[in-house]
Design a protein around this nucleic acid. Structure first.
Lengths: 206, 206
DNA sequence: GTCTATATTGGGATAGAC
DNA sequence: GTCTATCCCAATATAGAC
């Protein structure tokens, strides 16, 4: 299941890379408002005009940033899914995601770009593709054959979407209250819920 | 369990109300960027300068908007929790929240304000209070006595946070893909998961 | 490809008339 | 309390030198 983007940073000229990296840092540290051409120039050491030169305009830069976030997130999640089997798999997956949630700067400004991306038709397409891919990965991971009966497939899709929602929502709460929020506890509960209902969702498939 | 805000619209002068309403509409329809003093004046029919007069400055207006969102959301959720008992309660709560998720303009721009609120110390405090209240309501609703053993309390807290996360996350996905996303299916799965693990979380309490 | 200088726009805020 | 007029600033974008 290939990610819905190639690496947008591959084959990018060094200056464009530097601009992209600087933009990521600014948006993670200070949010969307702080993402100005002047700030990018200062952070990257490159010239203001280079943004337009390489990305057309600011919107083009934001689109490139979203692609990079999607690419990175897909790789990180896919990495959790590999190399384990059976019982251990669920535990490892959730532990991995929990650890990512705690990583400062993970999501790389995703929540900052999200409201803008929701309103831009092209960016919204990319978001839809991201979640589609993510659901498909989870379905594969849950051991769902492509030819499962429609009704079962629908329910498993719901499960995958619910898990994705929990991950995002816990990411939000963790960012709102970094000091207090107990991410690990919430993931333990999620694991428990999934374990207890496992047989109901994957009858005969494990 | 009183909400963490009084009604910020009570006792507000009519002009201030109009400005607040206009601002809500703008942010829901067009996002944070579109929330300019000029746009607010046009939408409300009031004068630009009235924003500063009533709210001090734009940041003051945004703070008032967040209070209003929190107030409305708390009321809406609390309304779901009342008037039912036992088995029916879980179903009614989730159905109610599912219906709210589908309501266009629910959250009233919450996801647009969120990234800004996360970075503003005062607004972040309000967000923390919102989630605290929400968790407390859920804990009460799950029938958790205040004097429960710490370990059990901790686990139930995790459960409540997880449910809150799922609600937010499903709200995001529903907004990203309004046409396709099957919110109801996801809530059915959530209900199933909770039902299957119910006894484990509320032993002897129902 | 890079950079400077500048054009242009639109934002938030406020002084002061009414 | 309301509104006009205006100030100041910051932002994007680009023309054109190098």
């Amino acid at each position: 299941m290939p990610p819905p983007v190639g690496d947008p940073q591959h084959g990018l000229p060094p200056v464009a890379r530097a601009i992209l990296d600087a933009a990521q840092k600014i948006i993670v540290d200070r949010g969307f408002n702080a993402l100005t051409l002047t700030a990018i120039a200062a952070e990257s050491g490159e010239n203001k005009a280079m943004v337009s030169y390489y990305f057309g305009n600011k919107a083009g830069l934001v689109a490139a940033m979203l692609e990079a976030i999607i690419h990175d997130e897909c790789l990180a999640i896919a990495a959790q899914v590999e190399g384990t089997t059976g019982e251990e798999r669920l535990h490892r997956l959730l532990q991995g995601i929990c650890a990512m949630t705690l990583t400062p700067g993970f999501y790389r400004g995703f929540f900052d770009i999200l409201p803008h991306a929701m309103r831009d038709p092209a960016l919204r397409e990319r978001l839809i593709a991201l979640y589609e891919w993510y659901i498909a990965v989870e379905l594969g991971w849950l051991g769902v054959p492509d030819d499962a009966e429609p009704e079962r497939h629908r329910r498993l899709r719901g499960l995958a979407q619910l898990i994705a929602a929990a991950i995002d929502g816990l990411g939000v709460q963790a960012r709102i209250d970094r000091e207090q929020f107990d991410v690990a506890q919430a993931y333990e509960v999620l694991e428990l819920l999934l374990r207890n209902s496992w047989r109901e969702f994957a009858p005969g498939s494990r």
